[in-house]
């Protein structure tokens, strides 16, 4: 194995975030490896979304180090970069899927434009190619191509969420952050979305960080799991090991509270 293959994509050490004097999260450390899907679970208010915002360069930590493998073999300090360099990473190498699709879509422009916009931000100018790629992605996320010129506010919640995923994956990002990607969707739509995400993660060899409170979602998507409680990581490991043999009192409570259909 080469030295390059032995560096994580994201390296997080001793990160803490505070809102004034209120704790967001602290003592957070882990590595995210290329091609790996990492789940973050915990109750509401446990610091999951705070952590995600911090890692995706939207909320500076009070303390700690977040490094990103910007080029093969080269780790850069995320918050040591300039604002414009961070924005560039977000635009060209990352995807951020919000819990509410309305936060991640532009409702005033067509579905096709929502997808095309990301490509154009990367410098693609050829109209035919842009249109073709947008159509391909709508098909991939199972949205009728006939809806390409419709605005997303005429779509159902599940369609909006799939469009948001298409908008993020069209640039073939190296890293994707997802905040409750299946939250608020009905169960049959969730299953479809999960299946789609599984396929795409595998096809594109993506790394992903998925924040959720849904243990079934992480069991299906994530190889590794972090459990957060009151702003701290209380347990981390292989997903099936953490869910089937939880060690920490909070994880045991979380796992035993799930209703088995």
């Amino acid at each position: 194995m080469s030295a390059m293959a032995d560096l994580p994509l994201l390296r997080v050490r001793d990160v803490a975030v505070y809102y004034g004097t209120t704790l967001g999260c602290r003592d957070v450390g882990f590595d995210l490896w290329p091609g790996e899907v990492l789940g973050v679970v915990g109750e509401s208010g446990s610091g999951k979304t705070t952590l995600l915002n911090c890692l995706s360069a939207s909320l500076p930590p009070a303390r700690g180090l977040i490094e990103y493998q910007a080029r093969p073999g080269e780790m850069v300090d995320l918050y040591g970069l300039s604002e414009s360099q961070r924005r560039r990473l977000q635009r060209t190498e990352w995807g951020i899927v919000h819990q509410h699709p309305r936060d991640g879509l532009r409702l005033g422009v067509s579905a096709g434009a929502n997808v095309a916009e990301r490509l154009m931000a990367l410098g693609e100018r050829h109209y035919g190619r842009i249109r073709q790629t947008a159509e391909d992605w709508l098909r991939k996320v199972e949205i009728d191509v006939g809806r390409i010129d419709h605005r997303p506010d005429t779509f159902s919640g599940g369609m909006q969420q799939r469009l948001q995923i298409a908008r993020n994956l069209v640039i073939e990002p190296r890293l994707i952050f997802m905040d409750e990607p299946t939250g608020g969707l009905d169960v049959s739509v969730q299953a479809r979305l999960l299946d789609l995400l599984r396929q795409l993660v595998h096809e594109l060899n993506l790394s992903a960080l998925i924040v959720t409170h849904d243990l079934a979602v992480v069991r299906l998507l994530a190889q590794r799991l972090i459990v957060m409680y009151r702003g701290e990581i209380v347990e981390a490991g292989l997903t099936d090991q953490v869910l089937d043999d939880p060690q920490h009192p909070y994880t045991q409570l979380l796992v035993s509270a799930v209703l088995q259909p």
Binding site: G237, L238, D240, Q241, D244, D245, Q247
Partner: peptide, 9 residues
């Protein structure tokens, strides 16, 4: 058996 598979710790 589950310990051998590292499903249990």
């Amino acid at each position: 058996l589950r310990s051998l598979y590292a499903n249990y710790k």
